Simulated assay, not measured.
Amino acid sequence: MAAIESNPKINLHVRSNSFPTAPHTFVSQFEEHLNRLKSSDSASSSSSSLSHKLSGLQDLQDSSDKFLQLSTTQQVLAQKWVDELLDGSLKLLDICTTAKDCLVQSKESVYEVRSAIRRRGAEAAIITVGSANYLASRKNVKKAIRNALRDIKGVRNSLTVSSSAKENDMLSMLKEAESVTVSTLESLLYFISEPKGRSKQSRWSAISKLMQPTRVACDCQEIVTNEFDEVDSALKSLICQKKHASADNLQGDLERLEMCIEDLEIGVEGLSRKLVRNRVSLLNIFNN
């Protein structure tokens, strides 16, 4: 992210005095997970790529917690920086909670529509009511996410490492871990709330075609599927009666969205537990 300076791959054998002369296994693991996430494709926003990144964040938080248990880490952070890291951990938990709440609300709405459709003898109006309720719920979810995205702008400012802290390798790495976590959660929130993000990709694709005409066929195939977009479009068409949507086809879209939400829920819930544990470790450093 632009808010924090990304260091090149760190040579653990030549570091400032904030690290021991010999690299510790936990330090190496932390750096390995961090660099892997930093080098991942930030432009990819499919549900599978987000699930993969959430899993990677859990590994990062695991190694971060082990990193925080090192006596050298605790000695350095306890001097000055732990309070700043505690503030960042609380903000990450707030964003994570918003993502969890939005996923839960979305899954409940999907279940309601699927239940209405399964009642084959029900009047079409019942399905329409269920669809309208789903879209109303989506509106509430998008509003909550817009508020969270505004808060993220403030969080990014706090991720900037001050000039007095730039020589502190430990703090820089932990702040970079915060930055990567915020970036992934932000991508998740956009994925849930703005499935029409494909339009941005289309604009880039148009530019790419002008620059590299020979790749037109390939670029046209690089459209990322968004399960929220598919269901939103199908239900809006059903309500507006623009076309007759097969209940089986709609049920399939809803099933895929429900599976997508469940996968993302697992990732966010796991990440939330790791963030809570790391916050406890920071509080222990602060209190000792």
Rank of each mutant, 00 (worst) to 15 (best):
N249M: 14
A217I: 07
E258P: 00
S163I: 06
S187K: 01
L189C: 07
N226F: 02
A247W: 05
D263S: 10
P195G: 11
N157S: 14
E230T: 13
W204N: 13
F228L: 10
K175W: 05
I266R: 07
D248S: 15
V216G: 07
S158K: 01
I223E: 08
E265C: 07
K209C: 04
G154W: 09
S164N: 11
L238H: 10
A247R: 09
L271W: 01
K200H: 10
E167N: 13
V161D: 00
T225L: 13
I223Q: 02
N249F: 11
E194V: 13
K209F: 05
K200I: 15
S193I: 03
S172V: 13
K209E: 09
A165C: 07
L189N: 02
D232F: 11
L264R: 00
S179P: 03
T160Q: 01
S199M: 14
A234T: 11
W204V: 08
R203W: 07
K274S: 15
I192M: 08
T214E: 15
L210H: 07
S237W: 11
K175G: 00
L254I: 14
E176F: 02
I239Q: 08
L159T: 00
R273S: 11
V216W: 05
V155Y: 08
H244M: 10
Q251H: 13
V155G: 04
E258D: 12
L188E: 00
T181P: 06
T214P: 00
L210Q: 07
D169N: 11
P213F: 06
S272A: 15
L250T: 12
L257D: 02
D248K: 13
C220A: 09
S183C: 10
R256E: 05
G154F: 14
G197I: 03
W204G: 12
S187W: 01
I266C: 07
E262W: 07
V180D: 00
S272Q: 13
N168D: 10
T225C: 08
L159Y: 04
C260P: 02
A217Y: 01
H244Y: 07
L271E: 03
D253I: 08
P195C: 06
E176H: 04
L159K: 01
N249P: 10
S164C: 09
L254A: 14
S193Q: 13
F228I: 14
A217C: 05
L257P: 06
I192E: 01
E222Y: 02
R256M: 11
M173Y: 02
D219G: 05
L271F: 06
T181Y: 03
T225Y: 12
L235P: 01
Q241R: 15
L185D: 00
D263Y: 10
E194R: 03
A177C: 06
N226R: 04
